[in-house]
Amino acid sequence: MSNENRQGVFPFHPSQPIQPSPGKPGDDHQKHSDRNKDDDKTKASMESVKELGANNIPQVQSSIHCLSIVGQVEGHMVLPPQNKTTKYEHLIPQLVALEQAKEVKGVVIMLNTVGGDVEAGLAIAEMIASMSKPTVSVVLGGGHSIGVPIAVAADTSMITPTASMTIHPIRLNGLVIGVPQTYEYVEKMQDRVINFVISHSNVSQEKFREFMFRAGELARDIGTVLIGQEAVEAGIISSVGGLNEAINILNKSIEGNGEYVQ
C-alpha cells in the first residue's frame, strides 16, 4: 500500500535541511555514510508515523531516559487488539540497557496504566526498584491496581494533582482450578503486591488493606480511589507534582551522585 492511501500520513519534511559542509576532500566517504545513517533515521521515523501514529522528535542526546507504561501491562497472555498494552518482555531488556549504559544518568517513568498482569507488573516494579541509577515515577492520568507497585518502585514517586490510583482486591479471573487452593493462591498473589507496596512506600500494611477492602466507594467493587494529594497523604506517593518537579528531583539526585554534567 502506498503512503498516499494511508490516513494520517503527511508528506515528510526533514527537520534539518541537508547542507553541504566544508571539509577535506577525504571526508567524502565519511559524509556519505553519515547521510545514509540519516536516511535510516528518517525511514525509522516514517515507519513509526505510519504504524504507531507517533512522530519521532528530532533526536537530542539526553542523560535522562523516559520509560512510559501505558494501558494494560501485558504479561503471560496476549490481550485482544482493542487493548492498548505495554509489553513487559520488551521493557525488561530496556531496563537492563538503561542500567548498563554509561551515558544514561537517570530514568523517569511515566505511568498511565489501568493495571494488568500481576506478575508482569511486579517484574517491572522489581526491576525499577533494583536499579542503581536515580529513578522518578510520575502517575499522570491513572496508576491503578498493578500500577501502584510500579509507581512506588522508583526512588521518588510523584502524582499529578488530577491523577488517580485505584486500590482494590485481586480477584480470581485467571485460569486456576480448585476452590480452596485457588483462594489461597489469590491471597498469596495479593500479599506479594501488598508487601511490595509497603516496603517501597510509607503506607502501613493495615492502611493499605483498609483501602483495598473499603466498601461504598467504588460503584461495582470494593476498594478506594485516591486522587492526587490523597495518595500522598496516604503515604503511598512521595509528592504531588508534574514533569518539572520530576526532572528537578532527578537532576538533583544525579548531582548528588557526582555524575551530573550539564
Binding site: 485482544p80 494488568g116 485467571g174 489469590v186
Partner: peptide
C-alpha cells in the same frame, strides 16, 4: 495468570475467542 485491573474483565478479554 491473574489480571489485576479496575476494568471489567469482559471488556479486556472481549474478542479473545
Amino acid at each position: 495468570m491473574i489480571l489485576y485491573t479496575p476494568i471489567q474483565l469482559e471488556q479486556v478479554l472481549q474478542g479473545l475467542d
